[in-house]
Nucleic acid binder design. Structure first.
Lengths: 201, 201
DNA sequence: TTTCAAAACACTAACCGTTAGTGCTATGGT
DNA sequence: ACCATAGCACTAACGGTTAGTGTTTTGAAA
């Protein structure tokens, strides 16, 4: 019933944070590939198994904000002002996320990600999960019983906007450019009446 | 100068094929996770290192048609009839690919892929590579010196169409549905004059 | 044909991420 | 004060992947 985390959970969070900090520091110092899991665990003074009880993989150490991103996308749909349309709300959120990732302190981290195939692959898979969650949220927002191709597509388009923007030298402008396309795509999809039955017999 | 492959390359191709066939057979019989690389190599009567000289990873054994897919997407752009527009050409190709993957014989293979997280992740990363190649081809087709956000986005949208369609029970209809959105997105993008300068100073 | 360099192939042994199994210890609630 | 829970630790192993090294095959030059 305690709304605030107890001592136990605080300790757990501290351990998690210590592991993440240690890992990012070592990765920054020697490179992602050059640092082994055993080194991270030793430096953070925890057992390897403890590390894996907090993070599901080595790559997950780098994408600590995974669930954060996911929830921000979903909340951009569910928690938006009632008078705000779907796509503009998502555009604002993607803009904020891109700004967050291109901030001064975060630059080296994202450079490291770009340089590691393993991390790039993990990131893409992560975005796909996020797109799934977003698609579910969008379907719910429209009162649909389940994800339709249109929902799935627009959710993917939105996360694509992030990925495409990250590969350009003017990310904010790229987001606007891609969202102009998404807006048009969404208008066409919305024009078609709610799909009578998306599930076959 | 020999246009046709010599004995050497025929043998190499044969070895590759034998490995792939053996792997797919064992995976189908016992499941992807239950079969180890060493078993595949032993059953195909090659060394483990030989296997990895033909395939870059265990997952690559399943996606043997990787480069095939990539080339089909690119050729759909470059080799289309001069009077055919870009998006319809890509729609035809995606339709064909979906048909190919939902054909009778291929069904168990794709079910196996869906059930393995590792394979799903590999597939997503693969599609991302394909989107990159497609984006380059589209940019070239438009006479652009390099990939613009619009090119990158539309390429991703197209491969998204494939992924979204595969998750529905009427893939062909889903492809049409998503491509209606892509068509609209593309029309808006095309309306904006060729970006004056996509690269910052 | 003979010869030669390249490339495919093989083998061992290891590295690294990840997990099962087991048990200890601290914590929070009763 | 006590107990069930869960965080944490340790060992040992599994499975994918690669480095290092040497052998055989092959295509073509001499």
């Amino acid at each position: 019933m305690t709304e605030q985390p107890g001592r136990r959970e605080r300790k757990k969070a501290a351990t998690r944070q210590k592991i993440a900090d240690t890992a990012l520091r070592l990765f920054a110092e020697h490179g992602y590939d050059a640092v082994g899991i055993r080194e991270v665990a030793a430096e953070a003074d925890v057992a390897v198994t403890t590390l894996f009880s907090h993070f599901s993989s080595k790559e997950a150490l780098v994408f600590e904000q995974d669930e954060d991103f996911e929830q921000r996308l979903v909340r951009a749909v569910t928690d938006r002002r009632p008078d705000e349309a779907l796509i503009p709300a998502l555009r604002r959120e993607i803009h904020a996320m891109v700004r967050h990732c291109t901030a001064d302190g975060a630059a080296p981290l994202w450079r490291m990600i770009e340089e590691s195939p393993a991390l790039r692959q993990y990131e893409e898979a992560m975005r796909q999960r996020h797109a799934r969650s977003l698609a579910t949220a969008i379907a719910a927002d429209l009162g649909l019983p389940q994800i339709t191709p249109t929902c799935g597509a627009v959710a993917r388009f939105v996360v694509d906007a992030f990925s495409v923007a990250r590969e350009t030298d003017d990310p904010q402008a790229a987001v606007d450019e891609v969202f102009r396309m998404i807006e048009a795509a969404w208008a066409v999809a919305g024009a078609t009446p709610p799909p009578r039955e998306s599930v076959a017999v």
